[in-house]
Nucleic acid binder design. Structure first.
Lengths: 402, 402
DNA sequence: CTATTTCGTCATGGCGCTTAACAAATTAGT
DNA sequence: ACTAATTTGTTAAGCGCCATGACGAAATAG
């Protein structure tokens, strides 16, 4: 017996499946899927030893998963060790697919990812969505989704769900966009405006970005703080491999953490919020550029060219981020802080001052700061993978539909 | 199907019991215990309908729990409705007991709590522990534990575990005190210095305080931020009914969140940390009192007498707390902020400025701030109850020993 | 070529919950 | 007062799921 980890009442949210034999079966199917997915091609015996069931039990589970088209038999392993070689099992590349979509300020994107995690279809449409009303944007998105689904179906895949990343706050129902300032959307029920044949899930792009980091990042820990920035500053908290959503679904909002309490007024009603120092608009202004005409890409470009003004602006932004992150790190004690989204491209100029500030203020207790490999791809991939994960988490739920 | 809550790999930490029939049985035993514990005396049929099993299945589970001495049959219900009245079941008041202990700066305390949550034995020893080395303090504590255990045994209880609350940072192993500044302890392995016959668990007093709030508070939500203060400022984060511990076990440390980044230097290496404005020493100084000679109690006393200096000092502390909490609330989006420990007694003078600052800086998104009913009792009760919860969480584990 | 090792499958069994039926204890209706 | 209806708790039979143990198959080691 180790550390007692106290949980909520076991019948409260958290335990999804009933504790009956059917529930047990479903959980074990999920464990087989997860194990095969995470550790590459594996024989039945290898799976059995990993999840603690017997070979016989795993055999029946695998049979069921193969019949459902979720697992594939790859044939005999290349024999290297003594004994009869096992038959390799892999997650199917022709079963269900996760459809991910992203509504960006300057683009729309849709992709399909198979259970193996491979992107099998992909469409991007450039053009600003700033100020466009929801209907035409979603109509355009729906057409792109149909296009990607058609392409995926030609490859033998079928869509298991649709997840949409948006640049704004999403309610806990994962359908309603409460506020997306850069699109000028308020209280929009995306669920009602998206194709009805696919169960849609909507979430913040920072949330999906952090999930992508968790699932796809190399060596990403199970406890980390993900900071991204598109226009505002988004953040997401992952604890023990689970995304922390908060009561209203707003957790992770780093942009309005007070940095200098008596600083300039912010649109949120506060003063000296992080966004006043490290938000896109503030940094562009500090670098002597006109917001609106320019975007983050310009900053990265000029910084690479050695523009001193830009360097100074980014250094100051890094300091402000460092102050805000000190608070967050004290509060959450994460294993790492990951810079993603647009911040990844600016990291070379942000990191030094950010790390300095963080280290100075937390005397040895500072945690690792790393940069996302995924960068701006995170939200889209995270969205698509969230559908894939839902299938892996409960394969029995999709086994019915072929 | 509602919101997909993505979890870590099911075979990773989080799933404690194996997904086999024995594990299922154990989890169902736990669900019966939790249900009876949470919803008062209940018939077998009522339990069955609540946890979704059949009456027959619940009957066998209850039989086993009664044989183990964890549940008691209270006799027939008072018949009010049509149909045969059920037989009331209640959690046993003569089975295992949780032993809680608290090492405070100015006192030691130990208590025993039965499965029903009633305090059945209790001892307090006053006298400062500031600067005393660990050995004599723990020897004294061990004697107090023996005394409480003896008293509990006279009432037909047997100790199921010991939990110790300490005013300092505890490593994730829940044995080692990494740093307790007010005791001047560093890297002390309490597990080795405590009675070996009882499995001991050590944790921060703020953590135990927040668990007490979660389990014993009236109407405490499942997501909240608990702020307490003894000498430093402690905090704890509860998410979805689970305590967030952080990578090193340091999560919740609110004391060194930057409030005024260019403020006075702090012992932690930073500048303008919350503790510089709302810590005991800072507040006493601001109120014109000498730290060391006075404690929080004096502040409450003088404030009640209408001392203007104290009022001003507490108002300013509330403002600083409000600034720090704005950041925390933005990051975590909790359902409530609960003021506990010594802060509860000072709440009348802290709250107005705290709530003003929080509301001003978060424009309608502010969350409820409430005051703990438990106050300074929290850590001790939380410790004892954590043992009780461990029994409820896995009754089969203790069923063996009588 | 034989012994050994490992894999996947099959038959058997145990465990835990469900189903269905029943006696017991109460209320509602005549 | 007596019957019908309702609800509880128990019992026996049944089924699903995993464990156990034995077996043939397919590789390596000597």
């Amino acid at each position: 017996m180790t550390t007692p980890l106290h949980e909520a009442h076991p019948s409260s949210p958290g335990r999804r499946l009933p504790d009956t034999q059917q529930g047990m079966r479903r959980r074990n199917l999920a464990r087989v899927m997860h194990t095969v997915n995470a550790e590459g091609p594996l024989s039945r015996a290898a799976v059995a030893s990993r999840i603690g069931l017997t070979r016989a039990a795993v055999s029946t589970l695998v049979d069921e998963l193969i019949r459902s088209g979720l697992l594939e038999e790859l044939g005999p392993e290349r024999p290297g060790r003594v004994g009869r070689p096992g038959s390799s099992l892999a997650v199917s590349g022709r079963g269900p697919a996760g459809i991910g979509a992203e509504i960006g300020v300057d683009h729309l994107a849709v992709c399909a990812v198979d259970l193996r995690g491979t992107v099998r279809a992909r469409v991007v449409r450039h053009g600003t969505n700033r100020g466009r009303p929801p209907q035409p944007v979603l109509a355009e998105l729906t057409a792109l989704v149909a296009q990607v689904v058609a392409e995926a179906e030609r490859e033998g895949l079928w869509p298991a769900g649709l997840a949409v990343a948006v640049p704004g706050l999403v309610a806990r129902d994962t359908r309603t966009v409460v506020r997306a300032p850069n699109l000028d959307w308020h209280e929009v029920d995306l669920g009602a405006l998206l194709p009805a044949d696919l169960p849609p899930t909507v979430d913040n792009e920072a949330n999906f970005g952090s999930l992508a980091e968790l699932w796809l990042g190399d060596d990403t820990p199970l406890d980390f703080l993900h900071v991204s920035a598109e226009i505002g500053i988004g953040g997401a908290v992952v604890v023990d491999g689970r995304l922390l959503r908060g009561t209203r679904g707003f957790a992770g909002e780093l942009g309005h953490v007070p940095v200098h309490p008596e600083g300039p007024e912010c649109a949120c009603g506060g003063r000296g919020c992080l966004e006043q120092y490290a938000g896109e608009e503030a940094v562009l202004r500090a670098a002597g550029l006109t917001p609106g005409e320019n975007r983050v890409e310009v900053l990265a470009e000029r910084a690479a060219q050695g523009d001193k003004e830009v360097h100074r602006a980014l250094r100051d932004a890094g300091t402000a981020l460092g102050i805000a992150l000190t608070g967050a790190v004290n509060l959450l004690d994460p294993q790492a802080v990951v810079l993603g989204g647009a911040l990844a491209a600016l990291a070379p100029w942000l990191l030094p001052s950010l790390e300095l500030e963080l280290a100075r203020r937390s005397a040895g207790r500072a945690c690792v700061v790393s940069v996302s490999r995924l960068g701006p791809e995170g939200p889209l991939l995270g969205a698509a993978h969230s559908v894939v994960r839902a299938v892996l988490d409960d394969p029995a739920a999709v086994a019915g539909r072929t």
